[in-house]
């Protein structure tokens, strides 16, 4: 199949999928609402008891909340794919003379768009709560780049249950651990206060360098080693998730 068909068919299916999102805007709101509640809760209820050194707690907290937003957003990616598979429309597309992989790519790109909208909503709430940054365009592009990379990695991860799940519960269940991962990292409180093994885990899991990098970027600080680690984690996760998803997909279509 030629490249033009891949692009053309992916565009057609992307429009279809985006139409789904537009017609069920509750999926975007639901994605954004939990992180927004966490943001409110932690800033206004727990924030005064949490010592993060200098600066506002909302500035400290935002990166972790953004990652939680993505983790809950990709549950809908898995859900949309699962719906296609269980309704038979996935097989209809696979039996048509189209670039077959465009079916997956359309879902992946939709996931990126939908997550970006949710992320913007969360950032707007944070701004209303006093979040401020003097960072320039380049730093913000860096923030957006890392968030998109992280979204892509988790999206390809979401493709796996989307293709294989046998029930709706199985589809949504996989995202819960991802939503809780930021709690055991530097997202909510500094890792220095955590007990030994927990601290070791927190400092060696991907959320910590990603959160630190995002924080440094909009605080106009150098990202240092965390920046390299963050990109490495995102790209590594993306590659592994993509490969496993592709194997799952090949198995599915025989």
């Amino acid at each position: 199949m030629t490249t033009t068909y891949v692009v053309r068919d992916t565009t057609t299916l992307l429009k279809r999928s985006l139409r789904h999102v537009l017609r069920s805007p509750d999926t975007i709101l639901t994605t954004a609402i939990t992180p927004i509640i966490m943001l409110l809760l932690f800033v206004y209820v727990f924030g005064s008891a949490i010592d993060v050194g200098n600066g506002r707690y909302v500035d400290y907290l935002l990166p972790g909340i953004l990652l939680i937003t993505i983790a809950s957003g990709i549950a809908y990616t898995a859900f949309r794919l699962f719906t296609d598979v269980s309704s038979g429309i996935f097989e209809r597309f696979q039996s048509m003379p189209i670039a077959r992989q465009s079916v997956l790519w359309a879902h992946v790109l939709t996931s990126v768009v939908a997550n970006l909208v949710s992320l913007v909503l969360v950032v707007l709430v944070a701004l209303a709560m006093g979040f401020r940054s003097g960072a320039g365009l380049l730093a913000w592009l860096g923030v957006a780049g890392i968030l998109v990379l992280f979204t892509l990695a988790l999206t390809w991860l979401a493709v796996i249950p989307g293709l294989t799940a046998t029930s709706l519960d199985g589809v949504s269940g996989f995202s819960y651990p991802l939503i809780f991962l930021p709690f055991i990292s530097s997202a909510f409180v500094p890792t220095s206060g955590m007990p030994g093994p927990l601290r070791w885990f927190a400092e060696h899991q991907p959320v910590t360098p990603i959160v630190n990098t995002l924080r440094s970027l909009y605080a106009e600080q150098p990202v240092g080693d965390d920046g390299v680690l963050a990109v490495a984690w995102c790209v590594g996760l993306l590659l592994v998730a993509y490969l496993v998803a592709m194997v799952t997909y090949q198995r599915k279509i025989g």
Binding site: T12, R16, S87, G88, I89, R92, P97, I98
Partner: peptide
């Protein structure tokens, strides 16, 4: 297929146009 493989969130016409575009 065994179950009507149509897109429930789209209108009837949109379903047909979608397949026409993919073909």
């Amino acid at each position: 297929g065994q179950f009507a493989a149509v897109d429930e969130l789209l209108t009837g016409r949109e379903n047909l146009v979608l397949v026409g575009q993919l073909r």
